[in-house]
Nucleic acid binder design. Structure first.
Lengths: 341, 341
DNA sequence: TTGTAAGCGTTATCAC
DNA sequence: GTGATAACGCTTACAA
């Protein structure tokens, strides 16, 4: 019987229980052919009886084998984007028999720094990080006992590291172009705080307008909305302007949903384009163009890059690789069964 | 300088570099007052220079201290319900300086069994499991070197264990009652495969109808729809019946969204009630009653239960605790700006 | 076929 | 103040 609440059974205890040396017990449990079928059976029996489970930590220490753990650090797991990314990582890891240690930073840079050090100290084999920091030198393997890191979503600054990101600029450009080609000229922009991702999407927005010789009215550019509520308020403000926008580009789904709510609330109708697909986007009853992509794939690719560094398939000095995943433009157009206003 | 790609720097190397014994180096890095300020400084300097990071695995082995890791096993992280639950767990764990090892089973019982054993072998201190299995004896601490487990969402069978769940029966009952009191009599039921959660919700549905002497037409009960697409198809079938339902109770949000799509697609209008709140639920333009709750809280409470078992605050023999979290009924009613059909 | 010694990286203990 | 020794739980190498 297991102790019931004491410390886990050790190999020594199993050996003692059978009346055999620790080494024999060890060999028996590995089904080493050198130990007699008899003792092997008896050891196995005792192990089961005592509820023995080999301590993989001790084993890996002795063998010098790695822990089989990958660190995954994201900013906000409640965001489906990151949970899908996490699932992508977990899927690849599990397929190789590896485990994922998950941490959420809440965009807190200090927490991020502490987390990655902690992960390194516990000897994860590598890390995938969606960093909240502007500078990434704290992720330098040289400071983290040579543990490789892959950055996801936002590219590395101040270090050389592999990364997987989206074509933020291209996606935003395409969506903005679509608005222009649909005849809209007075365009607004809504987005979360302008860290990398939003900054790139805004850059794409501006670039297209600049090329079309269409002025960007800075009064119609609002960033900083982290949730639907804030986005709704910001959108409502824009719509109440004397000269309101005729279309809005929203840098993520929360801002798009907020904008939609404002539109419906004010019983008006303008066109929307946004990054991120979302549930029911095709049934909103307003013209909507969406930039879609596969968040799962970001996680998968990041995990693959990381594993190739870890397993030594990839030369450690190989130049950093950067994977930019494509986006797709989808027009949901105007839903037929609903006619707003 | 760190090796660059070799094995991590060890304490022995730091000691050698300073020309001091390993023990002194160890003490210096712990800021043990017994070592002279001089050597302490030199050790710290060398450690930094060599990129040394203490191996917490080895340390915990020597000290007999636990790993500070919690296992979290869910069925499908892509479901926002589980990712919020995961965030709740992570939040509580992080507050205590603990890490979370995350695994996804995809509802595969064999995988689940393998995962929990693996976690136990790597000495997580405890586990929170959303089990896909009907019997949970593989989660018995006696078989997992005394590692405590808390079940989430679905209650334990075949073992004694703490658990945190939703009031599935109560929530479903309340929603069904609301449909009845709104005058609907011919009610249909849509849901995912009838494992515990759906089974309870269906039970609540039936119970209310039985009490109201309203017959359940079994032809209007469809379970097994895992995604929106399947739900939409099932709903469409019901709506095409000669005597279609006048209202539907959907056991989760995916089935509700599918039902909504079918309704819109067929340009009809019936009432909906469902478990799970979801984005834009208040703007659908059909009468909708929703059973809401806080998935984050499930994770938090489960983590708290687990930690109380781990830290020994709780007697190991204490009877299993069962926390049932309440649900709330929300009426989104009929949206004003849209008039379907 | 089985046992003994040594060591993975770290630290408590006792000696110097 | 500092260092040798042993030990955490396990396994490789060598001896019996």
């Amino acid at each position: 019987m297991p102790t019931g609440s004491g410390s886990p059974t050790t190999l020594r205890e199993v050996a003692a229980h059978v009346g055999v040396s620790v080494m024999t017990a060890s060999r028996a449990l590995q089904d080493d052919p050198r130990v007699s079928a008899q003792t092997r059976a008896r050891v196995h029996a005792s192990a089961r009886e005592l509820g023995y489970r080999r301590n993989e930590l001790a084993r890996s220490l002795r063998l010098g084998t790695p822990t089989g753990m990958l660190g995954l650090v994201v900013t906000n797991l409640a965001n489906p984007f990151y949970s899908e990314l996490a699932l992508g990582v977990e899927t690849v890891a599990a397929a190789r028999g590896m485990k994922v240690v998950l941490s959420n930073t809440g965009d807190d840079v200090d927490r991020e720094q502490q987390i990655v050090q902690d992960l390194a100290d516990w000897r994860v084999e590598g890390m995938i990080v969606v960093s909240a920091a502007r500078d990434h030198s704290h992720l330098d393997p040289h400071r983290l006992n040579d543990i490789p890191t892959v950055l996801a979503v936002r590219p590395p600054t101040g270090i050389m590291a592999d990364c997987v990101m989206l074509d933020d600029f291209g996606g935003a450009s395409a969506a903005t172009s679509r608005l222009l080609s649909s005849g809209y000229r007075r365009l607004g922009f809504l987005g979360p705080p302008a860290v990398w991702t939003t900054a790139e999407r805004l850059r794409g927005f501006r670039a297209v307008l600049a090329e079309a010789d269409t002025a960007v009215d800075e009064a119609l550019v609002r960033t900083g909305q982290r949730d639907v509520r804030a986005a709704e308020d910001a959108a409502a403000e824009l719509l109440r302007l004397p000269d309101p926008p005729t279309a809005l580009f929203c840098a993520n789904s929360r801002n798009a949903i907020g904008a939609y709510r404002a539109i419906r609330q004010m019983n008006t109708s303008i066109a929307l384009a946004c990054f991120d697909d979302f549930e029911l986007a095709d049934m909103l009853g307003v013209p909507l163009t969406v930039v879609t992509y596969d968040p799962h794939e970001i996680g998968r690719q990041a995990a693959e890059l990381l594993l190739s560094r870890i397993s030594g398939t990839t030369d450690a000095d190989l130049a950093p690789r950067r994977i930019v995943l494509p986006t797709t433009l989808v027009d949901y157009g105007r839903d037929l069964t609903t006619a707003a206003s």
